[in-house]
């Protein structure tokens, strides 16, 4: 187990080393190229900041005004009947929106019920197997100044829905030992 985690932790430094090595081997001015890249990076940050700002504020508001709880309230009893723990439900909405909001929600869940409880397992799988669909789409489209998403959000959210159903089935039916 120690060896596997060592290999995983070595991925990033190895990659950086490889890039620098290839650059030097091909006789590139790696310092100048790095600086140029940083300038490009700053421009990207400048372009995507308004989108990150808009999303962070609206997620903060929907959580702190309790609007999220009210939104979920009507579907809660249906989900409980299907055997889905109500503690996990807010995660279905937070996950596509924000990485930090969903992470802090899962931390609270772990503190309350533990990572090896049924909801804890479902939350772990959802967090590992899905991305922040809406956030990610906003940033990638925002970077090129596109505001219409066509079918992207519908398709992405349906993929998330499929992921959530799969995670619940895997845990509740106990097909694989988790």
């Amino acid at each position: 187990m120690i060896k596997i985690s060592y290999i995983i932790s070595a991925i990033i430094p190895t990659m950086i080393l490889t890039v620098l090595f290839i650059g030097l081997k091909e006789k590139k001015d790696i310092f100048k190229l790095f600086i140029d890249g940083v300038i490009k990076g700053l421009k990207v940050i400048y372009n995507i900041f308004p989108y990150i700002f808009a999303i962070t504020v609206v997620i903060g508001l929907i959580r702190s005004t309790n609007a999220l709880d009210i939104l979920i309230y009507p579907i809660r009893p249906i989900l409980t009947k299907l055997g889905i723990d109500e503690n996990i439900v807010p995660l279905f909405i937070l996950r596509p929106l924000s990485g930090s909001a969903s992470t802090s929600y899962v931390m609270e869940l772990f503190k309350k019920l533990g990572p090896d409880s049924n909801p804890g397992k479902i939350a772990s799988i959802i967090m590992g197997g899905t991305e922040t669909t809406i956030y990610c789409t906003t940033i990638l489209l925002g970077a090129v100044g596109i505001k219409k998403a066509r079918g992207i959000l519908i398709a992405g959210l349906m993929a998330d829905f499929a992921a959530i159903i799969t995670a619940i089935l895997l845990v509740n039916l106990n097909i694989i030992k988790i």
């Binding site: 950086i16 890039v19 620098l20 290839i22 650059g23 091909e26 590139k28 790696i30 190229l33 790095f34 600086i35 140029d36 890249g37 940083v38 490009k40 990076g41 700053l42 990207v44 940050i45």
Partner: peptide
């Protein structure tokens, strides 16, 4: 992001 942007700018300019 500035860091990765710098590193990958090196990589983009190589044949790899």
């Amino acid at each position: 992001m500035c860091f990765w942007s710098g590193i990958f700018n090196i990589f983009e300019n190589t044949s790899a």
